[in-house]
Amino acid sequence: MVKVYKELNDILLVNLNIKEASLENGDAFKAEIIKLFDKYHKSIAINMSAVEYIDSSFLGSIVSAFKHLISFQADVVLVGLSKDITNLFALTRLDKVFKIYNSFDEITNQ
């Protein structure tokens, strides 16, 4: 589900390769993110441009993974959110919590 795209000095770029982010795969997603963090020990930027649909359970899994990495002074960064998912992050005010970028290029060009 989560595939490494590129490892940079301070952040790992990964692609989330699912269309439906839901109750069905939220726990597995969180486990994969934590496993990657245990291996690379750095912040993780998740490209979600393939995701068409997300529910509250998956949102909870993203927040849970984020809280885990924050406890180790790392971060979860989100990339490529669709319009509806952007609206959902605004509705839940999670857009105040996560750093959100349009593309990996925005991160690498910083």
Binding site: S56, S57, G60, V63, S64, F66, I70, L88, L91, V97
Partner: peptide, 21 residues
Amino acid sequence: GDEVLDVTNLMEHFGLLIITK
């Protein structure tokens, strides 16, 4: 939001909140 947000305290269940809002 006057205080610094404690992210360790963030809720992880959003269903009721999403419907309500």
